[in-house]
């Protein structure tokens, strides 16, 4: 009996250290943040000296025009970059899904931008966009066009381009992996039936890749909501608030405005948003699994 009990608890005992570490490393800071978001908290104060203000921070934020503008910028940024990256990434994957000599070298080259530290990416693009000495304007001018004030007049678009440049490879590499693991039989059957290349893409390849693409897109979306360094280095959120994404606003609220409580509340809004996205991802994968299981069952029953 005793042995049985011990047996039943063994797995939990083995898991205990991990759970403990998770609790300390994950839940404690998270709880601290949630707790802090209900308080009026100046960084010069200990949290015990702070005053409880209820939902005030959340309500102030809700009516704060700057916060809402920042939220809108974040949404525009995230949706645009993910859509563009998906389009270009999947397109590239479809183009490069063939036996070319030196393919592995090409693939490594394509994923290089992803490996560069974000601060470096920001600096690089900032210099490329520089109005007088930047590569882009110099090229434009040498071709006889007028220079463009990239980070002044078209800041959000410029930042979006930099992000697309850095993160398209992520989608590309996952899409390529998905493409190469597609069942060749389906493609062969389509080819025998006389499907054109476009038809193969739209009716066979894309639908079969869809599960991978959805997960990839959600991962990128979550990442895009939290992007900070590249924008911080390139524009510091300017001009005006035109590129001030939420992560940057949170950091400024904590350091410049010295309102840790409000910053915590803002982080919680972001967390809730990301949680909803993650939940969406869960639901979609679950639905797909169910559909796959149903299909498999149907196939089995037919055979």
């Amino acid at each position: 009996m005793n042995g049985q009990l011990a047996n039943r608890f063994t797995p939990y005992i083995f898991m205990a250290p991990a759970v403990l570490i998770m609790g300390i490393a994950l839940l404690y800071p998270l709880g601290y943040m949630v707790y802090g978001s209900f308080r009026e908290w100046n960084p010069s104060q200990n949290i015990s000296e702070t005053e409880f203000v209820g939902l005030k921070n959340y309500i102030t934020l809700f009516f704060d025009a700057a916060f809402r503008e920042s939220l809108a910028v974040t949404l525009i940024f995230a949706v645009t970059v993910v859509a563009a990256e998906l389009f270009i990434g999947v397109g590239l994957a479809l183009l490069l899904d063939r036996n070319i000599r030196g393919m592995s070298l090409l693939r490594t080259l394509f994923i290089l931008p992803m490996m560069i530290a974000p601060v470096v990416v920001g600096l690089m693009w900032r210099y490329m966009y520089h109005p007088t000495v930047g590569t882009i304007n110099r090229t434009l001018k040498s071709m006889g066009f007028e220079g463009v004030d990239w980070l002044g007049q078209h800041a959000l678009a410029s930042v979006i381009v930099a992000d697309i440049w850095q993160w398209t490879p992520f989608i590309f590499i996952l899409a390529l992996a998905a493409l190469q693991s597609l069942p060749r039989s389906a493609l062969e059957a389509a080819r025998i039936d006389g499907a054109t290349a476009w038809q193969q893409i739209f009716y066979i390849k894309l639908p079969l890749m869809m599960p991978v693409l959805i997960v990839t897109a959600l991962l990128r979306l979550i990442d895009a909501f939290k992007v900070l360094e590249v924008i911080l280095v390139m524009t510091q959120g300017g001009p005006g608030l035109s590129t001030e994404i939420l992560a940057l606003r949170i950091s400024r609220t904590a350091t410049e405005f010295r309102e840790l409580g409000v910053a915590a509340a803002m982080s919680n809004y972001l967390l809730i948003l990301l949680l909803l996205l993650t939940l969406g991802m869960f639901v979609i994968t679950r639905l797909q699994e169910k559909r796959a299981a149903r299909l498999a069952k149907m196939v089995q029953e037919e055979s």
Binding site: A66, G152, G238, P239, G240, F257
Partner: peptide, 18 residues
């Protein structure tokens, strides 16, 4: 001041660019 400064700075930036 940090908060007012930031607001002043972003608003003036809108004057200059937008």
């Amino acid at each position: 001041w940090g908060k007012i400064n930031a607001d002043l700075g972003t608003t003036l930036s809108k004057v200059l660019t937008e």
